[in-house]
Amino acid sequence: MITRTVTITNSAGLHTRPAATLVKTAARFQSEFTILKDEFEINGKSIIGVMTLAAEQGSSLELRFDGPDEQDAAAAVVDLFERGFDEE
């Protein structure tokens, strides 16, 4: 299992569109993907779950990847966060 910590940079936060991008990206990989925020732990492949976090700009998320392709999954997902989901 690998763990990464990311911060949300885009101003609108993790709203519907980035949430959809995130789960679509995560779903390409076999590894289990979990997001932790404020003691809240959800499945990162579930759009409802990701939106439940209602993560705002500046909030920090812990990402956990567990499975055969965890390295690739982590790289792809962290890249999304680093690019701010290509938003302002």
Binding site: I47, I48, A54
Partner: peptide, 16 residues
């Protein structure tokens, strides 16, 4: 459920 989600659900291929 949670306060935000209540009785929404996602159906693959349809959305929310």
């Amino acid at each position: 459920g949670t306060d935000l989600v209540k009785h929404f659900m996602e159906i693959r291929g349809l959305g929310l």
